[in-house]
Amino acid sequence: MTYAVAALVDIDDFMASEQARGQTWARHQLRHADQAVRAATSTRIDATCHSLPPEEWLVVLTGADPGALMTDARELAEELRARIVRETAWTATVSLGAPSLGSGAAERAARQVNDYKLVLGGDRVIAPPVDEGAAPAPHESAWPASSPRPHESTALTPPVRIEQQLTRRVRAGDRNGAAGLLAGWVDRCAQEPGVDPRTLRNWLIGQLLFVVDVVNRARLADGTTDWVEACARLPIEDIIMVGDIHERSYLHMWLRETLGRLMPPAPRRDVLALAEAYLAEHYTDPGLRLATVAAAVNASPYYISHLFAEERRTTFLRHVTGLRLRHARRLLATSALPVDVIAAHTGYPTAKALRGAFRRHVGCSPTEYRRAGLRPES
């Protein structure tokens, strides 16, 4: 009887790196990766290698002894992973299925194991243990003992809930903030003991449906959500696609794209107006930070910075500095308060900090400004 073991070689973060560095660079790296995989398998008469574009290879080993075959497959998997790390700018995950009868069954077994990359991360060999006492190789991750086998159900619940924060970002129209929140939540959930890819995806789909419910304004006569209308925003094809994603970096990209479609365009000027109003009331606080303002208006710090750049052609820091210095000039011109007191009234922790800001932006010291009898801008 002849057994087969499949090793699925999967480049880590391929889509993200191609997007960041371009297709030409990615094609060049793929050629090196292909050479590395074929060099590792070319000397083995019991191995066949097939390229699975764009960034996978299927290596199948055959033999009569399933135990010895699995040992050989583990050694080859380590070599494959090491060669790609050494000869390309990438890392790779090599997933090994259990010995099977036939190459088709062997490939399916390897893909089931590769699904665990979503939970475990990349740059490793993933293999189900041959026996309870088998020790994994240096870079090998055996099937997590606390995780269920494929198609087993779990009663786990997410370690943290983010619906409240998610609602604020969705209602503020902050697509990037909502996507970032969901991506971070997925990463946190993946670390939960016993979680498997199916459970992680089910939790994520639940959050996406929650976003659909928050975005959708249609209600039935009894006040409940009109899910026929709501689910038109999230086609079944999108939900099904989640099941094919086993790379967390790609999942993060997919979340940004999906939330971009789900959420209406951000009310940019409304969010900016809220941020400016908050700053007008709190700029005298020396501890004021971008993150503080973002939390107060239910948006991400990145989004607030983006709005100041796009709508005001300035930065968050310059805007705050302008508010503080305008107030300082007014006090210098209309009062006899000492500089250190004015600093405390305008958001600067010390008189030295106020003097430094004055020299950079006004061109003189506060004392020189007062002596010159200059009037503040209206």
Results as ranks from 00 to 15, higher is better:
residue 57 W to R: 00
residue 58 L to A: 15
residue 58 L to I: 10
residue 59 V to K: 01
residue 60 V to A: 01
residue 61 L to W: 08
residue 62 T to S: 12
residue 66 P to Y: 08
residue 67 G to L: 00
residue 68 A to G: 14
residue 69 L to K: 07
residue 70 M to Y: 15
residue 71 T to R: 15
residue 71 T to D: 15
residue 71 T to H: 15
residue 71 T to K: 12
residue 74 R to M: 09
residue 74 R to G: 15
residue 74 R to E: 14
residue 77 A to S: 07
residue 78 E to D: 07
residue 79 E to P: 00
residue 79 E to R: 05
residue 80 L to P: 05
residue 81 R to N: 05
residue 81 R to I: 02
residue 81 R to T: 05
residue 83 R to T: 03
residue 83 R to A: 08
residue 83 R to S: 10
residue 83 R to P: 08
residue 84 I to A: 05
residue 85 V to G: 04
residue 87 E to L: 07
residue 87 E to F: 11
residue 89 A to H: 08
residue 90 W to D: 07
residue 91 T to Y: 05
residue 91 T to K: 05
residue 94 V to H: 08
residue 94 V to Q: 12
residue 94 V to D: 12
residue 98 A to W: 13
residue 99 P to K: 10
residue 99 P to G: 13
residue 100 S to R: 13
residue 100 S to F: 03
residue 101 L to H: 11
residue 104 G to P: 00
residue 107 E to C: 07
residue 108 R to F: 06
residue 108 R to E: 14
residue 109 A to N: 07
residue 110 A to G: 11
residue 110 A to F: 12
residue 111 R to A: 11
residue 112 Q to P: 00
residue 115 D to F: 01
residue 116 Y to A: 01
residue 116 Y to H: 13
residue 118 L to I: 06
residue 119 V to W: 01
residue 119 V to F: 06
residue 120 L to D: 06
residue 121 G to N: 04
residue 121 G to A: 03
residue 121 G to C: 03
residue 122 G to Y: 01
residue 123 D to Q: 10
residue 124 R to V: 04
residue 124 R to A: 13
residue 125 V to G: 12
residue 126 I to M: 12
residue 127 A to Y: 04
residue 127 A to N: 06
residue 129 P to Y: 02
residue 131 D to N: 15
residue 131 D to E: 13
residue 131 D to T: 08
residue 133 G to W: 09
residue 133 G to H: 13
residue 133 G to K: 07
residue 135 A to W: 02
residue 136 P to F: 09
residue 137 A to P: 00
residue 138 P to H: 15
residue 139 H to Y: 11
residue 139 H to W: 12
residue 140 E to L: 03
residue 140 E to R: 01
residue 142 A to Y: 11
residue 142 A to P: 12
residue 144 P to I: 03
residue 144 P to H: 01
residue 146 S to I: 00
residue 148 P to Y: 01
residue 148 P to A: 14
residue 148 P to K: 05
residue 149 R to C: 04
residue 150 P to H: 14
residue 151 H to W: 15
residue 152 E to R: 13
residue 153 S to V: 10
residue 153 S to E: 13
residue 153 S to Q: 12
residue 154 T to F: 08
residue 154 T to D: 13
residue 154 T to S: 09
residue 155 A to K: 11
residue 155 A to G: 14
residue 155 A to Y: 10
residue 156 L to S: 11
residue 157 T to E: 15
residue 158 P to C: 06
residue 158 P to Q: 15
residue 159 P to L: 10
residue 160 V to N: 05
residue 160 V to F: 09
residue 161 R to L: 06
residue 161 R to A: 10
residue 162 I to S: 04
residue 162 I to Q: 09
residue 162 I to R: 04
residue 162 I to F: 06
residue 164 Q to I: 07
residue 164 Q to T: 08
residue 164 Q to C: 01
residue 164 Q to H: 12
residue 166 L to Y: 06
residue 167 T to I: 04
residue 168 R to S: 12
residue 168 R to K: 08
residue 169 R to Y: 10
residue 170 V to G: 13
residue 170 V to Q: 05
